[in-house]
């Protein structure tokens, strides 16, 4: 365990997080510590409960037990949007975008929400120069500048995946949880997406889910293996790749996943 022990360096932590659907336990007593600036990967076979864990941490699914601690503050009782306001953002495994808005509008919306000006119904959105420029900068950073005015629905799939990340970044997160950012993207393009992810600010704490082990070993500094809703093991890429148990569980289950 390379995790930092003093609480001060921990950006996001979970304590005894548990959740089940009926008799199916999808999160079993999960203890995580993400140090500030971490680049952690969360891996595990299909149905291991990875997405569920993100849902629990971001408040989209209430836990049966346990706490979630963001920067030392217990956020377990907060609504999803309140967690976002405190700096915890996520992306979705399956695109969850605003089909008929264009990327500029969508990201501007997210920026306006963060700046607390989204309930102003009396002013033209276009007068908020700073917000709009901030939105455009985020898009440009994610190589979406050239499609900023195109309807989201008509964007190529890979671009839509990037927009997923752009929307999350617009909330200026301290901790960002990426649920298979390259899901469904052809292998040769998925590298591009992870280059973007790797280029994010070092202050940002990152946890990403990914199935492609090459990508995981390349970008993660620490890997958490989730099996059947419980943390199976965790460690550095070297430790994990050497672990025979991981190979067996992870690869063995994937065949009929």
């Amino acid at each position: 365990m390379s995790a930092v022990d003093n609480n001060a360096g921990i950006a996001l932590a979970t304590r005894g997080l548990s959740r089940s659907f009926g008799s199916l336990v999808v999160a079993r007593d999960i203890e995580l510590n993400l140090p500030v600036g971490a680049r952690y990967a969360l891996i595990g076979p299909n149905g291991a409960g990875k997405t569920t864990l993100i849902n629990l941490m971001t408040g989209m699914l209430p836990p049966n037990q346990g706490q979630i601690i963001l920067g030392g503050e217990d956020i377990t009782a907060l609504s999803p949007q309140a967690r976002v306001k405190r700096g915890l953002a996520r992306t979705f495994q399956i695109n969850s975008l605003f089909a008929h808005l264009n990327p500029l509008e969508a990201v501007t919306l997210a920026v306006c929400e963060r700046r607390g000006i989204s309930s102003r119904f009396w002013q033209n959105v276009a007068v908020n120069k700073d917000a709009i420029e901030e939105a455009y900068e985020i898009l440009a950073k994610l190589k979406l500048g050239d499609v900023a005015y195109q309807t989201t629905r008509e964007l190529p799939y890979g671009r839509q995946r990037l927009l997923e990340i752009a929307l999350a970044l617009a909330t200026k997160p301290k901790v960002l949880l990426l649920d298979e950012p390259a899901a469904g993207v052809p292998q040769e393009e998925s590298g591009d997406i992870f280059e973007v992810v790797a280029g994010l600010s070092n202050d940002l704490t990152l946890l990403f889910i990914e199935h492609d082990m090459h990508v995981v070993f390349r970008f993660a500094t620490h890997i958490i293996v989730l099996v059947g809703g419980a943390v199976f093991t965790e460690g550095s890429p070297a430790e994990i790749s050497a672990d025979p148990g991981v190979r067996e569980v992870y690869l063995g289950k994937r065949h009929h996943g």
């Binding site: 605003f98 509008e105 919306l109 929400e113 929307l167």
Partner: peptide, 15 residues
Amino acid sequence: RGIRENWNRMPAIGA
């Protein structure tokens, strides 16, 4: 319009 387009995404952008 964001609410109309995607109710589920709105909380994830802090709305």
